[in-house]
Design a binder for these strands. Sequence first.
DNA 1: CGTGCCAGGTGCCAT
DNA 2: ATGGCACTTGGCACG
Lengths: 307, 307
Amino acid sequence: MRLVIARCSVDYIGRLRAHLPLATRLLLVKADGSVLVHSDGGSYKPLNWMSPPATLRIIEPAPEDAELGVMQTWNVQHAKSDDRLVISIHELMHESSHDLGVDPGLVKDGVEADLQRLLAEQITLLGDGYSLIRREYMTAIGPVDILARDGHGRTVAIELKRRGDIDGVEQLTRYLELLNRDPLMAPVKGVYAAQQIKPQARVLAQDRGIDCLTLDYDAMRGVDDVDSRCAGSTTSIRASSDVTPGRGTVVPVQRHIESADDRNRWGGGVCPGTTGAGQDHCRRRRPRLRERPDYVRRSCWGIPACV
Amino acid sequence: MRLVIARCSVDYIGRLRAHLPLATRLLLVKADGSVLVHSDGGSYKPLNWMSPPATLRIIEPAPEDAELGVMQTWNVQHAKSDDRLVISIHELMHESSHDLGVDPGLVKDGVEADLQRLLAEQITLLGDGYSLIRREYMTAIGPVDILARDGHGRTVAIELKRRGDIDGVEQLTRYLELLNRDPLMAPVKGVYAAQQIKPQARVLAQDRGIDCLTLDYDAMRGVDDVDSRCAGSTTSIRASSDVTPGRGTVVPVQRHIESADDRNRWGGGVCPGTTGAGQDHCRRRRPRLRERPDYVRRSCWGIPACV
DNA sequence: CGTGCCAGGTGCCAT
DNA sequence: ATGGCACTTGGCACG
């Protein structure tokens, strides 16, 4: 990895065009030839960049550029496309090179896949008599997150999100439309399940007769409010405090076979990085676990309905 | 901006949990307190990060961490949420600090807004007799990119994308559903316009009776194949070569008033960063300008239809 | 390799 | 603040 602080202007030409006027910036050249141009603010996204694989060629500036004060021209060419990044360096303020070696990579917990695994295990959170049919039920237009059967034997398609936005409702609607075209499966009910469901998404879901279900990841992991020290990240359900409402004390459903990707992400089920941090984090606002909105079909977003 | 190369492990606790095992990485501390953890590969996205505003506090490691070889503990706390990044530093290999000043920021050309402006100007690309009603026509559920009227006086809602994916069809469907609930406006036709439309998106659009239109940004900007040196980035339409098909030689429609945001992004209409780069880029595969697919309604994605 | 979909998405702009 | 939406989105997993 090469770190360069330089006064430079940058031009990207590829899927679009982008230009950075002359200023002092960090140029980060990675081992795979990718280049990042960072300013001293903003977020993690660089102002400009070139994705790997790419090759950096440092050339003499064209005469007219040299006259304008360019001392080096960096030509970063993407290996597989026409995308190109041209950095015109006017002044080098710092340069250093470092051997980092290969990175072991990131381990995550709490993404949708984890939520999906837990909900599949605790499928009765949806109601009594629910049973799991399949996770990632494949259709021609994409996988349904969870397919289940309710107490009356009716098929239920569940779309799962970490944050329930409007596009998730669209997605589920698409699946429902498709599944309901199959006479053997119809009628299929839809459930939109997420840690948080945005009001607009809820309205749209209700307008389409889709159930909404707010999930509590911490509770589903078996952590309660009294003792939330990130100590119990195993998936076994503990005896819950009275905070967990109603049917909350659920034992993982074992009668249904899991699809194969059920590996434990943290290795031994130990909470990672317990270097003294994160105690007060788990003490968060806790949304209601089972939320059953009143259905207002054809709410029409406030438009006088065409009844 | 502070640059640190260090052997470290990293833990993020916030919207999810993420852990980075011990390895050598770049730690980038920006002026706003944000921190980026980069490896020597991957893309522009850091392995781990903290968004601004945040504060970095460097503290003595806890005794048990010190025993494990931690010499410094970085505590990066987000200012507005519980998100926290904890970096356990085992070894410092490099450290430097630099004053970059504020960045003038990026100037772009070729994003959806530019495409929208051009299509509004050249609305007759949609067909003879088309006229512009409004860009960014606001509805309760979001803005319709372009609202137009066809030769028969019928309203047409146009959803514009750079890349025509399936979610754009959903978006347009949502708008059409809403607009068609207004008896004064119905029936509203839908047109999905993009530089490239994915096959699945096209199928879904056709299934819903939505027209697809592939746009050629370069051609609409007035650049042709013969002489594509990025020299003519003005919006005036030049005499086109025979490559531009059919009704291609279009004069910008002036009879329709623009909405106010029509400033020229490049100042004087000059192509940016002409430091000798980008000649061969503009010589790309050129999709057909006017594409009118055969409509197959109720295609049911291959499922035996419920006719 | 294309297609769908998640992401700690981030950023921008609207009400 | 919340909502809708673009983004050089990037990245992964699966057909």
